[in-house]
Amino acid sequence: PSTSLFNQETLQQRLQTLIEGARESWTYAIYWQSSVVDFSGASTLGWGDGYYKGEEDKGKRKTASSQSAAEQEHRKKVLRELNSLISGSSASADDAVDEEVTDTEWFFLVSMTQSFVNGSGLPGQAFNSVPIWVTGKERLAGSSCERARQGQVFGLQTMVCIPSASGVVELGSTELIFQNSDLVNKVRVLFNFNNMG
C-alpha cells in the first residue's frame, strides 16, 4: 500500500496542500525524487512533481519579467509547442499560450529538465542532510549553488530545500520569507513516505 500511495497524484496533492495551506506566499513547490543510478549506490535527484501557484499579486505578472523581446518570443514558442504536443490541438487555438511567460513560470518549466547528483546543487546538498533556507537576493546571488543563483535571476527572493524520506522538497518565492520550523515540520509529515499509514 505504501508504494501505491507514492505516486504522482498524491505527490501533487501534498505539494498543493503544502503551498495553499501555508501562511507565507510561496510561488512554487517541487518534489525532487531520489533514485539510485549505478552499482556504487550513487543517487541522483530528478523531477518528481511540481505545483506552481504563481505570484500573489497578479499585477506583478506583467512587470516582473525583464528579459528581451527575443527571449520572450523564445519562451512563447516553446510553450506553444509543448501545449500542442500535450493537448494535441493547434497552438493558435489557445490564446493563453500567447500570454507573456513570466520569469518564475519559465524557471519552473526549465526545472522539469534538471537533475542533481547527491551532494551537488541546492537540492543535492539538502538530501540526506539538513534543510537549506536562503532568503534575500544577495544571498541567492552569492550562493555556491547554480540553482540558487539562477532562481535569483528569475526573480526569486527565497529558496528552501527540505529533505524527506526519498527526496527533497524545494519551495521558492518572489517574497522575502524567513526560516520557520512550521514549514519544515509540515514537509516531514506530508512527505515522510516510510511512515504511511
Binding site: 505545483y51 509543448l82 493563453a96 500570454e99 518549466l109 529538465t113
Partner: peptide, 30 residues
C-alpha cells in the same frame, strides 16, 4: 519532438491547465 520525454507529461499538463485558469481569472481591466 525529442524534448518532450524530458518533461514529465502529467506535470506539464497540469501546469498548462492551471496557467490557463490563472490567466482567465486576471481581469482584462486591471
Amino acid at each position: 519532438n525529442g524534448d518532450l520525454p524530458i518533461f514529465r507529461r502529467k506535470s506539464l499538463q497540469r501546469f498548462l491547465v492551471k496557467r490557463k485558469e490563472r490567466l482567465t481569472l486576471v481581469s482584462p481591466y486591471s
